[in-house]
Nucleic acid binder design. Sequence first.
DNA 1: GCCTCATATGCACATTGACGCATATGCGCC
DNA 2: GGCGCATATGCGTCAATGTGCATATGAGGC
Lengths: 201, 201
Amino acid sequence: MALGDAILACLTERPMTGYELAKTFDSSIGFFWKADHQQIYRELSKLRDRGFIQGREVVQTGKPNKLIYTLTPEGRTALRHWAARPSTPPSIKDDLLIRLHALDSVDIEPIRTDLMDRLEHHRDRHENYERILKKRFPDGTASGVLDLGNLLLLQLGARHERMVADFCEEALQALSAMSGKDKGNGTVVSLGDGKRGERQS
Amino acid sequence: MALGDAILACLTERPMTGYELAKTFDSSIGFFWKADHQQIYRELSKLRDRGFIQGREVVQTGKPNKLIYTLTPEGRTALRHWAARPSTPPSIKDDLLIRLHALDSVDIEPIRTDLMDRLEHHRDRHENYERILKKRFPDGTASGVLDLGNLLLLQLGARHERMVADFCEEALQALSAMSGKDKGNGTVVSLGDGKRGERQS
DNA sequence: GCCTCATATGCACATTGACGCATATGCGCC
DNA sequence: GGCGCATATGCGTCAATGTGCATATGAGGC
């Protein structure tokens, strides 16, 4: 239950409501781990049932009552035990890569536009990381252990996005060079190798 | 159903049995997309039901009969239509990052050994990619569209692994420097900030 | 003789994730 | 007055994924 542990990790910073957690998973931690509010509320119920977190209800008028969740000592222990276990190296699981793997059986034009969209997307994220880095760590060093973790996180994110952006750029160049070599025209072509008879619809 | 499309992409190369696909997902494509044989057999049944692939049974003695799957024209069309849709940028989802995010609430020693294991793991994979690249693309260029896709795939994989390996190395250095600054000794310490009373078990 | 490995396929169950929908209300905009 | 937005929580369903177990047998090692 990695999402559960991610929530516990977030709650080490400060107590939060499900709503705040959902916002957190839409920015900072969410750059690495996506989760919508439904998933978070479901996970919070489970964590509460297991005694890892405690909800304190805050009565509000006009809005539904808040439930501010705090880590219990059991929750802290659970997080520490989880963190002591070796991590599992994830696989990349980017479906763009599947498209590239079957590059000769698909249309290149959509791939090209996809690569351009992705280039923009990863560049935006890269700039975002760099901006936060400059703001939070102007001299590039961390003062404490908590800061160190976040600095490392941001650095990894920045590097990752830059690498993927560079990749998209080079892939686009290679694709242009290749289609120029193969076909010599700019029309939308099915890059089949001629052995099969179907055309794109 | 991204796994289904990954299988279709694999079958564009050549017809395969579920067993062979499982082995493929344990090497080439499997570097990017993990799937065990149960997942693959289940997905194959679905693809067959939808008419995207066709199974030809090969009777064997001593072993269970083979089912060699071939892409149907419908399957090719489905793959091409899927590939024409924009890809969804995945999030990193590495639980090592969650550990780093809560670095001040967990024990650093396990994190350190984890980072060392991961460093070795990513270095191995990087070497593996570089080896395949040298063997398949000695001059660093692709001859056709199919080759281009695989070249790009391998290049991305190599870069990714090198980046993560470098990150692990630098994280280890930063962690050493930090623990030296904070504590001045080399014993196993809980990096709590002193506000909480619990120690590691 | 027994154990493990390679070949080859598959079911059942549990967890995780994605997506839509529901509820309740104050605030500002047009 | 109606519309969307922010706040705040949650149910229900289905697809995707992960884990364990089951079957069948020849080949080779201890």
